[in-house]
C-alpha cells in the first residue's frame, strides 16, 4: 500500500557535471511525473531516487534512467523523481525537458 522508493546509481563514461545548483520540472498528473536534478558531489556518479505507487517495473526504470545518463553523461548530480504511472516515453521526455529548462 505504501509508496515505493527505488534507488539507482550510474557512473557515466565521460562525466559532465551538472552546471547549476538545481532544477525542477514537471507536474505529478496522472500518467506523469516531476523531477528535481541537483548538483551533488558524487565522484562522477549520479544517483536517482524514484518515488512511485507502481511496483514491478524496477528493471524498466533502470533501463530508462540508464539511457538518459548515457545520452546526457550527467554526473555529480542527484535526481529525485515523483512518479504517478508515467510511461517510459513520458519519463524520458520529462528528463530531457528538465535539462532544457537550464538550457542544456
Amino acid at each position: 500500500m505504501a509508496l515505493n522508493q527505488l534507488h539507482f546509481e550510474f557512473a557515466p563514461a565521460t562525466p559532465r557535471a551538472f552546471p547549476v545548483a538545481a532544477v525542477h520540472y514537471g507536474v505529478v498528473g496522472s500518467g506523469d511525473m516531476e523531477v528535481i536534478i541537483e548538483a551533488c558531489a558524487l565522484a562522477g556518479k549520479t544517483q536517482v531516487t524514484v518515488t512511485t505507487p507502481v511496483t514491478g517495473f524496477d528493471h524498466v526504470w533502470q533501463l530508462v534512467l540508464g539511457r538518459f545518463i548515457d545520452e546526457s553523461q550527467l554526473a555529480d548530480a542527484h535526481i529525485s523523481i515523483n512518479d504517478n504511472n508515467a510511461t517510459p516515453v513520458v519519463v524520458s521526455l520529462r528528463l530531457r525537458q528538465a535539462l532544457l529548462e537550464i538550457g542544456e
Binding site: M1, A2, L3, H24, V27, V28, I36, T51, T52
Partner: peptide, 9 residues
Amino acid sequence: PILGEAIEF
C-alpha cells in the same frame, strides 16, 4: 505515502 498515493514536492 501511507495511502500509497503519489506525492508532489
